[in-house]
């Protein structure tokens, strides 16, 4: 079957098997391998992307469900070769160890900050329940998200929001 959608602002179209999950489509058809497959059972959140500006687990979404939608992956959040403030904060605060869960963590963090620009530590931990870090490096991830919230509040409008306004 044929699907078409917008991925990172670019219209894409492909002929796919209906069984294709969104993450397979992103990685295998579009070669966007920044989105990781961790558990492939909807538990770990490594495959988190934005579907119409909402964080979803792309292993738990059929490509058909994204028909006509706007999808944003980790490759689509930075502007002009720089880093998104959340990425910069993860680097600054060492919010990763092996890095495998990081794309999903960053995408979830951006969604979280969009809904709650100044989240408490408890809110951050609660909102990250669907993202597992097997290095158990949560402490610095939470710190990085708090730092990103502060940076983004100080430099409104943040890059992602600007992009949305332009889109």
């Amino acid at each position: 079957m044929k699907v078409s959608m917008t991925v990172n602002g670019r219209p894409v179209e492909a002929e796919v098997d209906p069984r294709t999950t969104l993450v397979e489509f992103l990685r295998k058809h579009l070669n966007l391998t920044g989105t990781h497959v961790g558990c492939d059972t909807g538990q770990c959140g490594a495959c988190t992307v934005h579907l119409n500006d909402r964080a979803v687990k792309s292993c738990s979404v059929l490509v058909g469900q994204a028909q006509g939608a706007a999808v944003t992956t980790i490759e689509g959040i930075a502007e002009d070769g720089g880093l998104h403030p959340v990425q910069a904060a993860f680097r600054e605060h060492h919010g990763l160890q092996c890095g495998f869960c990081t794309p999903g963590m960053v995408m979830m963090a951006i969604d979280l900050l969009r809904n709650d620009p100044a989240p408490s530590e408890a809110t951050i931990r609660q909102q990250l329940q669907g993202n597992l870090c097997r290095c158990t490096g949560y402490h610095n991830i939470v710190k990085a998200i708090q730092a990103a919230a502060a940076t983004m509040a100080a430099t409104e409008p943040a890059p992602t929001q600007m992009k949305e306004q332009l889109a």
């Binding site: 909807g42 959140g45 988190t48 579907l51 909402r54 964080a55 979803v56 687990k57 738990s60 979404v61 979830m108 969604d111 979280l112 909102q127 990250l128 329940q129 669907g130 993202n131």
Partner: peptide, 9 residues
């Protein structure tokens, strides 16, 4: 229910 991503779908 579930987690944030599950609640979004």
């Amino acid at each position: 229910i579930g987690d944030a991503q599950v609640r979004n779908m």
